[in-house]
């Protein structure tokens, strides 16, 4: 089993099997996004408290979830680098960081736009908002570190250590709404027992979440393939691949 995993994770085989997978996820993204946006904007009923403004949730919550999820993936890869010296994990961190930063920025901006009509302010220094902003700085910091470490040997270990230090922020973001009772509302979906949201509002949200996840996977595969192309540019199999084009 380990032999198979190693084979699948080698740059050459990855480059081969990731191509159809990428197109599959791209298709999924389009399908989920179309259904999700249509049902979120037009089919879901307006919230009895927030009116139609709550429809921002279909962008805000998936991107906030992804901002944490992507950092968790990066931390897992950092662990793979530090403990098992796994080569491909560095490529994944490099591909994931800008995507994570985009999701975090999106969560902050849509939250701000949502906050204006609901709370009467674009921004407050609430625990959830502040820790999410810190997450954005973490992503930017990791990206800056990667850029300035370019071409240095064993730079992946340094990036991995930085990613792992920053992981402290993830539980803080996640639990901030329950630790500090502030303006930001509590969790509505990730309560497994009984989500405090009605089902015809929930389904578009779950579909949008699937859309964001497929988008992330598609972009990850795309960026990873580019990165492999660059790192393996001197190997013979790349020349064969390019010969087919």
């Amino acid at each position: 089993m380990w032999a198979l995993l190693y084979k699948l994770a080698s740059p050459k085989t990855f480059y081969q099997w990731s191509r159809p997978l990428m197109y599959g996820f791209a298709l999924l993204t389009i399908v989920f996004l179309t259904i999700g946006i249509f049902s979120g904007l037009f089919l879901a009923p307006a919230d009895y408290q927030q009116g139609d403004a709550f429809r921002i949730i279909y962008i805000h919550v998936p991107s906030a979830f992804m901002s944490l999820f992507v950092y968790a993936i990066m931390s897992f890869c950092a662990l793979l680098i530090v403990v098992w010296k796994f080569k491909m994990a560095d490529v994944v961190i490099k591909a994931a960081a800008p995507l994570g930063a985009s999701f975090t920025l999106l969560a902050l901006v849509t939250g701000s736009i949502w906050g204006k009509p609901m709370w009467g302010t674009w921004w407050i220094w609430d625990a959830r908002l502040t820790s999410e902003l810190i997450l954005l700085f973490l992503y930017v910091g990791v990206m800056a570190l990667q850029t300035s470490l370019k071409n240095k040997p064993r730079s992946e270990v340094i990036v991995a250590i930085m990613v792992l230090i920053g992981f402290v922020d993830i539980p803080i973001v996640h639990y901030s709404v329950s630790w500090w009772n502030t303006l930001h509302q509590g969790a509505t979906i990730l309560k497994f027992a009984k989500p405090s949201i009605s089902s015809n509002m929930l389904y578009p949200l779950l579909i949008m979440l699937m859309a964001f996840i497929s988008y992330f996977v598609t972009m990850m595969l795309y960026r990873t393939r580019t990165e492999i192309l660059w790192r393996e540019r001197k190997s013979t199999w790349i020349k064969n691949v390019l010969g087919d084009l």
């Binding site: 810190i134 700085f137 973490l138 910091g141 800056a144 570190l145 230090i165 920053g166 922020d169």
Partner: peptide
């Protein structure tokens, strides 16, 4: 510059 950028998010919490 990088030092400041990296320290800021880990110090604030």
């Amino acid at each position: 510059v990088l030092l400041a950028l990296l320290l800021l998010p880990v110090y604030i919490p």
